[in-house]
């Protein structure tokens, strides 16, 4: 798994609530049997018209907004369990997603792929949207070790929560399977003692 420690980057703002996984990647694009290439269809129906022309008013099609941090409204990633949503976001070049609330399965899927979901307060989120609304090149500074996000323009800084185990997985680039495989004898004993 990809390692993550620190990132200072511009932002792609998506000020919409309840963005579900069908928006992140529609089901008709889930037919690949590998993990790569889903970024092409990230937010497919918001990025493209029915005739495959670009919807120029959508933020991902606006060259002014570039960056490795996606910032979205609350309850991001609700809906299906498709890990393709996390893969698509990562494949499109994002390392961090910030929202004021995440759906459970999406959050877990993101963490299992080294994509860092950061939950901040409604106020902090509103300030990010306001900052980037005034300057599309505004940056955020993310420090996983310190568990902080800083709005580089305003200097506002906030802490964020992350499970200590998941944090170490991200920093070291190892995953849950490695963790359980190392304790497989316990699983066998559990089965025998049932």
């Amino acid at each position: 798994m990809k390692k993550f420690e620190k990132l200072t980057s511009a932002i792609v703002p998506l000020n919409i609530e309840n963005i579900d996984t069908d928006q992140i990647i529609p089901a008709r694009f889930l037919k690949a049997t590998t993990r790569e290439g889903f970024g092409e269809n990230l937010f497919r129906d918001w990025r493209y018209n029915g005739d495959n022309t670009l919807k120029t008013d959508f933020v991902l099609n606006n060259p002014a907004f570039k960056g490795r941090i996606l910032v979205a409204g609350k309850n991001f990633g609700c809906g299906s369990s498709r890990e393709h949503a996390a893969w698509a976001i990562q494949d499109a070049g994002f390392d961090v997603v910030i929202s004021s609330f995440f759906a459970d399965i999406f959050k877990g899927n993101a963490l299992n792929n080294g994509l860092l979901p950061i939950q901040v307060s409604d106020e902090f989120l509103a300030e990010i949207f306001s900052t980037v609304g005034q300057d599309s090149t505004a940056q955020l500074d993310v420090d996983l070790e310190a568990q902080t996000v800083t709005n580089v323009v305003t200097g506002s800084k906030t802490d964020f929560e992350i499970n200590p185990y998941k944090k170490s997985c991200l920093i070291n680039g190892y995953d849950d399977i490695d963790f359980i495989l190392n304790q497989k004898q316990l699983v066998v004993e559990f089965e025998q003692n049932r």
Partner: peptide, 20 residues
């Protein structure tokens, strides 16, 4: 409960999940 594909792999490999 529903799980992502990395967790499907986890259950394949270990018949277990790491869960809060």
């Amino acid at each position: 409960f529903g799980i992502g594909t990395s967790q499907v792999e986890q259950v394949f490999a270990t018949q277990c999940l790491l869960q809060q």
